[in-house]
Nucleic acid binder design. Sequence first.
RNA 1: GGGCCCAUGGUCUAGCGGUUAUGACGUUGCCUUCACAUGGCAAAGGUCGGGAGUUCAAAUCUCCCUGGGCCCACCA
Length: 770
Amino acid sequence: MISLDTDEEIVRKVTEKWEKTNSFRFNIDSDKPVFSIDTPPPYINAIIHVGNAMDYIINDAIARLERLNGKEVLFPFGLDKNGLPIEVQVEKEYKVNILNTDREKFLNLCNELLKRYSNESKTAMIKLGISFNNFSFGDSIGDAYETDSNLFRSTTQQIFIDLWKKGYIYEDKKIVNYCPVCHTTIADSEVEYEEADTSLYRIKVLVDGTEKEIATTRPEMIPACVALVANTSDERFKGLKTAKMPITNASVPVIFDESIDKNFGTGLMMLCSYGDKHDLELIRKHGLQEKIIITEEGRIKNTSLRYDGMLIIEARKSIVEDLRSAGYLIGEEKIHSQHPICWRSKTPIEFIPEKEFYVKQKEFKEDLLSLSMKMKFYPESSRQILLDWINSIDQDWPISRTRYYGTEIPLWKCMDCGEYLFVEDGKYHQPWKEPYPNGTCPKCGSKNIVGEKRILDTWFDSSGTNMFIAGFMRNNSFFDRAYPVSVRIHGKEIVRSWTFYSLLKSYILRKEVPFKEVVVHFHVVDQKGEKMSKSKGNTVTAIDALKSIPPDAFRLWVFLSGNPLEGDIRFSQDKINEAKRIINKVKNLAKFLSQFEYAETKEIGDFDRMVMEYFNWIYNSILEDFNRYDFFSGLLRLKNFLINVFADHVVELRKSALYRGEKPPAYVLNYILKNSLILMNPLAPFTSDYLFDVLFRSDINKEKFELKEPEADHSQIIEKIVELDSSIWKYKKDHGLSLNSPIESFKLDKELVGYKDIFSDAHKVKSWSV
RNA sequence: GGGCCCAUGGUCUAGCGGUUAUGACGUUGCCUUCACAUGGCAAAGGUCGGGAGUUCAAAUCUCCCUGGGCCCACCA
């Protein structure tokens, strides 16, 4: 009997083999059909926690599945290096402020810091056995890429220019979502809502000489008040004209609008520029003059009062004090409400006017909805997330950001005629420090040209990964073959950003879907079913988890605890232990069967043939599950068969025949093991790769999934066999007989008559009663 | 306010009109059985969230309610 390596050794040997033989390299010249997977590039220094790990494990299961399905799988590793996180970290570590640091110097600090990052995410991917085409960075199809490389950024810029030329990008000054901490405009998709208890203040206001009350959660906005609003049909406020505001003593009109809820607060609303989006709508609708009192740093301005310069929260406290001491504050109640925050910094956003570049999207809603119907969603119900989002769009996508570390907007502006200029040489450009390459303005001949300083929204970059990996701009013939990308797999929370923006771009540029399939998964929650979050301290990093859990056990756990496409899965020790046991069982099964020769033979007896046909049937149905990306059901089926039927009964029943050196059972049982290992490969690649090599002396990565024939659903008979086998074991045990001692007679189900010799052989039963 | 999803022993889960309602984990008891104590055997534990309806027959189909989860939306 062979002896097997320890789990650690297996992982080490297999990892080494994959690396040495370049097992998963993408071969662009292959004539196999291409299957492409666009994975979410992890942030360079992001800690890969178990939830991210699950995402990559699902990605990888699909990559390995499709390889076994005979596809040439394009599965490149990407690393995200753009955007805010690096800038924030630079500010913290080098104790600088982006607002008063020279841009060149700041970018150098970013690069310096990026170099120091250990790239832990890559280490985690290797440990998890994610079969990316290549872990080294390069410009060829399938190579690992970085989103701040010149190639990636020039691709993004080219996409920008394409959109600009076609008139899909415009510049406009509008009220935007502004994050005072990130100092930049953010898109609606970057706005999150946080539930919190806030105070609703009831404040006395003099309206046409009589006292009325307003209710507000943001008293600091009183100086920005431009009107009071009541419902058109609200009798209480009918005919009112002018209000005198406390604190500022300003006179504002009373206006009426249907959108006001008579029952909320006092029924009389303070309209400010801008407290929220509703304010924006009303001010536009009623043609009021805005009064902006919030700066880009989130401080108060333009009040000509002592609040100028204060942070919003400080101003709120001060104004409440002033209202109280002046007798205007009537009441304060706690209410539970949701307020908008920035997804990165988690601070409340403000609404202020800024001039930004926009990508048109409002006018394409219908087309985007119909394109959404052309992608296949797993599970089907997740399509609704995208449809809901598209339906809720009410403004275009602001894509310019006043930050430094990102892809520069590739435009220059002629200061004389105002024309925006660009070049189409396919190179990466930094207009803020680079003179306009063509020298003079083609429109007016002016030399007075200034480069654009802003960069692009990170989502403008990331939403092009599908085009990038398929070779957009650098290999057009391949791009035509590989686009749309086959599948994108990611969590529910980024449907409205990653999926949506990719769809938008693909629609505008090519009028086609960005990928054929979308797989949307749920999340990992902790042992008690609670969401993992840093603040709760219940997060677990992948690297930590892998210290005590072999990677295959970890990977099996993902598909063992429930279907991650249908619900959250718990990070539970019990399930992980179960996964470990399954792997151990398979290893032992392999160890046992390795003693007997795997040699094809035609002389197969009825019992072995029946078992083989039944296995073929199971195999085909597992394949069917897998091809629906339902690894959960497939694994459940495989586990039940392999352990509860195959190991416990079939192998036990055939043991004596095997020990006698009979060839057919040795062949059939090894055939089942061999094919089970192939089935396990997408889920537990280390163990299956290793055992396949040890037992069958060949590379599992060269195998192919093929429907088996003949197949037959013998589950009824199998059930009876399991039942009889168990009852004989139980009988012997109950009668104190050793397991190889003979039995005079036993009752046999008439459907099992044909297999009675098998039972006689295994249990030494001398005669049967039917 | 609108929408989507879910509800089966302590936990997870199978079930897709007729089953004594799967299986696993956990619990308890017994077993050093020759691949595997990361093993084997056995036991306890569920009126399938509640109600009504369709049907000869409902965990399974329909409706309502309740309780969870998620998403969207301008509640000041």
